[in-house]
Design a protein around this nucleic acid. Structure first.
Lengths: 321, 321
DNA sequence: TTTCGTATGTCAAGCGGTTGACATGTTAGT
DNA sequence: ACTAACATGTCAACCGCTTGACATACGAAA
């Protein structure tokens, strides 16, 4: 049987209440008693049961984190920062990889509520999940509009798109295309596209819907069909990498014949593919801001605060443009 | 106030016991009652409190996952698979990024025990954390020897090292060095090094201890000091990428003058740096096996099963060798 | 008619810890 | 000697749900 508070009390020769007092630093405790209790805890190898504690306190110190997949460098990095910050604040992360699937995301949201999480950070695709309307559950969305009442933290996507496209134009590109994934529906990321469409005369946007192999396939098709293309603004670095790969296959010289710019600028990308010109998102800032916002909402259930936070992005020029 | 089981009972005009029966599919319930209860649940927007349930059941369905950092593609991918599999089995993941720091890892282990996790999967560096000796807590380690009793799942590191080094030799390298991080102490990954040292006449292993910039710095130093080097076996793809970067800086032609082989072969690396020759670890298999093993231990507290599982690796030849 | 399986209800204990109320005793300060 | 502050204890309620025990009905099969 597991050691419980009562056992500690017996071993220390004090009452359960006293042990609880020591554990929670409440009321009056003499140094002596405190030591006795602490010794008993060590000797019995006692760990307080946080499930019981949570039940009583109605506070679990759990935060749900829903991302499409942590294996993507952007979300991986974001998750790392979010987890680190939360951990330093005494919160724990329940990790959910939704794969961008509505059903999965719904199931995760339900699970999180049942587990009485204190709040949720969502950076996944799907709208209209009623679960998010659960009374006063603090939720922060990263780069996605979930509902009119849910605050959004993200980077300046319009500016990012503008920086990227303007850079391609400055480098002399005349036939620029834009490639993005299926992710960008109803998200602030649509502003990247908006910027592209605002800056370019005959904007052509490709929306690639499938998994990786399909993406390479699609890009090959695009580049073959539109050989005049001399600039690609990809909506993330993985897409940009796929473009570079296809360009190599087709013996298209980058950056001479074709310039490619990505988006995200994660550490991983910068390590593995430092040649890639890209727009760097302030991932750590996004993490900090979302956690801070969430904490505000948790501590202050009514105050809504600013609805949308937009953080600055940065153009990282390298060798693909 | 939150809706509770009792409220549902009232709304449905039945007893709490009956609601619980519907919720848990126990005992006799007529279709009619079931419907009444389910309707009440929907109308009241009721979510059962899993904290209370866990307390009673002494089962949380939580699995702790300790990794150095999910932002590393290898651990990110591993975490994704582990989470997906667990999720499909009704388990939730508590994510812990230890940064390889002993103190952090200890704190995480304690936290997980307090939260009554049903099991822990560890793929972090540190040995000798007493917490892992907590009575009969099911633990599986990935690629790390934590304690004599804790089962280890990993890939065939010796074979991986051998494949890598033999490949370099076959490609004509005569002066091969090995670079690894600080991670490889007391881990099966040391066998990669062992293989290297077994295959090469004058083995020279560099252990890089610091963060990324330092790594690039160190590699630059190494390549400058040992210009005769014509082959590098890096202990992971990130290191290999750093080598490639430095080679470019120093105008060393890869693969003509220098051949580089990495280790891990994650999807991310294969997307961002498809040119890299590397040893591919069976990440999904590692995830599956560890989860399965953990589940066995959870369901079957005594049975220990095989202590070490070794999964096959694969040489992916590309353009850097 | 008896008995069994079905369907529901009431009740109370329990999971492990927290907390407030209240009692009692010890010190120290005035 | 009297009052506070300090130190500890007992007791019971509570967090929300589960479960076993037990009671009560109803219809159907034996």
């Amino acid at each position: 049987m597991k050691v419980k508070l009562e056992d500690v009390a017996k071993a220390a020769g004090v009452s359960p209440t006293t042990v609880s007092r020591v554990l929670n630093n409440r009321g009056y405790i003499s140094e002596l008693t405190k030591e006795k209790v602490e010794n008993a805890i060590k000797e019995l190898n006692y760990y307080p049961n946080d499930v019981a504690r949570s039940l009583f306190k109605k506070r679990t110190n759990f935060i749900g984190l829903i991302v499409p997949t942590v294996s993507n460098p952007f979300f991986g990095e974001l998750s790392l920062y979010i987890e680190n910050i939360c951990s330093s604040l005494g919160y724990k992360i329940i990790l959910c990889n939704s794969s961008g699937q509505l059903e999965k995301e719904k199931a995760y949201a339900t699970m999180l509520i049942r587990h009485q999480v204190d709040g949720i950070i969502v950076c996944s695709y799907n709208r209209g999940i009623d679960t998010y309307k659960y009374p006063k559950l603090p939720i922060v969305a990263i780069d996605h509009y979930l509902a009119p009442t849910i605050p959004v933290v993200g980077s300046d996507n319009y500016m990012g798109g503008k920086l990227a496209v303007q850079h391609l134009i400055d480098r002399g590109c005349r036939s620029i295309i834009h490639i993005n994934g299926p992710l960008e529906l109803e998200t602030p990321a649509q502003y990247r596209r908006k910027a592209y469409e605002d800056l370019v005369d005959n904007p052509i946007t490709y929306e690639l819907q499938f998994d990786e192999e399909d993406i390479v396939l699609s890009i090959r098709k695009i580049l073959t069909e539109r050989p005049e293309t001399d600039g690609i603004f990809a909506s993330d670095d993985m897409m940009a990498a796929a473009c570079l790969q296809v360009a190599r296959e087709l013996s298209i010289q980058v950056p001479e014949q074709l310039k490619v710019i990505g988006y995200d600028g994660t550490k991983t990308t910068r390590s593995l593919l430092p040649q890639l010109t890209t727009i760097k998102q302030p991932i750590e800032e996004i993490a900090k801001t979302s956690v801070k916002k969430l904490m505000d909402m948790i501590d202050n259930p009514e105050c809504s605060g600013s609805y949308e936070t937009v953080l600055p992005v940065q153009l990282l020029i390298s060798e693909t443009t």
